[in-house]
Design a protein around this nucleic acid. Structure first.
Lengths: 150, 150
DNA sequence: TATTGTTATACTCTATAACTATA
DNA sequence: TATAGTTATAGAGTATAACAATA
């Protein structure tokens, strides 16, 4: 069988290597789960963050999701053109845009989250709830360490 | 504090979201750890696989690491031009190239692995050995599920 | 027919630098 | 002077299709 632990030699004991592969597996299945919807990982992320904090501007969304301002532009354009987000000049700070999710955006987000739940169930089949929670907690601790040096 | 769990709304309970962020944190620190060496994640991967299986061809390396044949070409070119790999026509199958790591390649791989160990120690600071092993095992189970559908 | 390696191509993601308009 | 958004650009990763040589 190809892809077995042994064939990767020195990589096998590395957490980073397995993180990479597990992320790749998730990404591939995520893309398949979203097929036909036009949604991608980042777009769902942006939609979820704006839904959580209506009126937020793109810079702030980028800071939450670790996306550079320059790269936020086309993402927001995509979502606004698809009528999933509205973008209006913030009266309190006329440099910024206040973002909000449209009704259609809320529908698409709900549909995306339903697909994602099925996708997660698929990827974590065989995991007990305890194991799932443990994995989540260990991953969160890695993210926090990243913040230390940033 | 930016990037807090709460600000991501519906994403927070998702393993995929945290996998993505943890992978991003690892990748950033990996790149920093390799600064000045010219090595990248994929290149170390290829070097490690060839070191483990001398005489292997590029297609097989790609299958092990989930890299498409078309994308292997420039990677192998890079490593051969840097004199870290040799590429010779396989006498048993003249379509294929038998790959092998050069002495210099072995040195670079050893140096890379030393840097990676320090990087992993940094990213997993505060993890007990039990926690590290648990994380590794949970990630491996996700990879295996990915193989099921492939 | 199938497989190895190759070329060409394209899309996404990520990163930096320089610009504008507002604060 | 700092910040919000923008433009332009470039590198890396990933994907597909089509081809030549060999099996």
């Amino acid at each position: 069988m190809v892809g077995d632990q042994d064939s990767v030699g020195a990589l096998d004991p590395l957490v980073g290597y397995h993180l990479r592969r597990a992320f790749g597996a998730f990404s591939g299945d995520f893309t398949a789960a979203m097929e036909g919807t036009g949604m991608r990982q980042v777009l769902v992320g942006v939609l979820a963050v704006v839904a959580r904090s209506p009126g937020i501007n793109q810079g702030a969304v980028g800071r939450v999701l670790d996306i550079k301002r320059a790269n936020m532009v086309s993402l927001i354009n995509e979502l606004v053109e698809a009528k999933l987000l509205t973008r209006e000049t913030d009266p309190q700070d006329r440099r910024a845009f206040a973002l909000a999710v449209t009704d259609r955006g809320r529908e698409v987000l709900a549909d995306s989250l339903a697909r994602i739940e099925a996708h997660e169930a698929r990827m974590l089949a065989g995991f007990t709830e305890t194991e799932r929670a443990a994995l989540l907690e260990l991953l969160r601790r890695i993210e926090r360490r990243a913040g230390d040096s940033a």
